[in-house]
């Protein structure tokens, strides 16, 4: 006994065709905005030569007297430069920053919603579970279907892939705020809005920073995979290494990705978070 196959494929094809026709202008706007943004940021990052960028970036942790961080950052950046992959690395970083920025712009409000509303939490939680179980590669499929090949679908797939950690971190951070502190604020007559903006969010900041860091790391790993669908950068060099059987090329690009990961991690650790006991007011 065998059922005839459900014509799922043709349904999906029809649905996508309908969406693309109807939503065409919207997709165009999204696509144009993202690619313009990416181009601007990429040019900005590449505008300064490495011998100017590297001292500028290393000055950050140095200024905060974190010498080990500065040394590690310097080593990672010099390695990228030495491997002659600076331009590709900057392209990858610009994709990562845009995708992670979009992701955070969505994730933090959703995290707040999940912490504040039981209904929202009961919807968001299982969706996050599913998203985090889904292998990275699968995120590429819908992105390609709607936006074709290029940087835009790469950014969107990356953004979606990197959403869950900052949502969870934000919601956890707010949930962990000492209820007695919240109570004191209520006793002083603060409104729900004031409670959130002045008490809960500042106190959840160390958690949110952890979420930001995770979001950036996940974005980096996804941006590299997204080179398969034309998001250019270091990942492209890996793919080329693979298709040309050029071990050296691929491994060098891979090492450069590790260096970018170390550099981003150190930079954002220096930016905040680690001294979370006194978040800036």
């Amino acid at each position: 006994m065998e059922f005839p196959p459900i014509p799922l494929e043709s349904w999906i094809d029809a649905a996508i065709a309908w969406l693309v026709v109807r939503g065409g202008p919207i997709f165009d706007v999204i696509g144009k905005t993202l690619s313009t943004l990416e181009l601007l940021l990429r040019d900005a990052l590449r505008g300064l030569p490495p011998y100017v960028m590297i001292p500028l970036l290393v000055a950050f942790p140095l200024f905060k007297r974190r010498f080990r961080t500065a040394a590690l950052l310097l080593a990672a950046l010099l390695l990228i430069w030495n491997l002659e992959l600076w331009r590709e690395a900057m392209q990858t970083v610009s994709l990562v920053l845009i995708a992670a920025g979009l992701s955070l712009g969505i994730a933090v409000p959703l995290g707040i919603l999940a912490a504040e509303s039981r209904l929202a939490r009961s919807i968001i939680e299982p969706v996050l579970d599913y998203m985090q179980t889904t292998p990275a590669f699968v995120y590429l499929i819908p992105a390609v279907l709607f936006f074709g090949v290029g940087t835009v679908p790469g950014i969107l797939a990356t953004m979606a892939f990197a959403l869950p950690p900052p949502i969870r971190a934000t919601s956890l951070g707010i949930a962990e705020v000492d209820p007695q502190i919240v109570e004191a604020a209520v006793a002083f007559g603060s409104s729900r809005r004031q409670l959130l903006l002045k008490i809960k969010l500042p106190l959840a900041l160390p958690y949110i920073w952890v979420g930001v860091n995770q979001c950036i790391m996940m974005s980096l790993s996804m941006v590299v995979i997204a080179s398969l669908i034309g998001a250019t950068g270091l990942g492209t060099r890996v793919v080329e290494g693979l298709s040309q059987f050029d071990i050296g090329k691929g491994v060098e690009a891979g090492v450069a990705v590790v260096a970018v990961a170390i550099a981003l991690d150190r930079l954002f650790a220096a930016g905040g978070g680690k001294d979370g006991s006194k978040p800036a007011m």
């Binding site: 000492d178 007695q180 502190i181 109570e183 004191a184 604020a185 209520v186 006793a187 002083f188 007559g189 008490i199 500042p202 106190l203 900041l205 006991s277 006194k278 978040p279 007011m281």
Partner: peptide
């Protein structure tokens, strides 16, 4: 009504980030 009343708690409950 809350504005008429002030409270001091056993655990102080100062806002730790201020």
């Amino acid at each position: 009504m809350r504005a008429k009343i002030g409270m001091v708690f056993q655990q102080f409950n100062l806002f730790p980030h201020m």
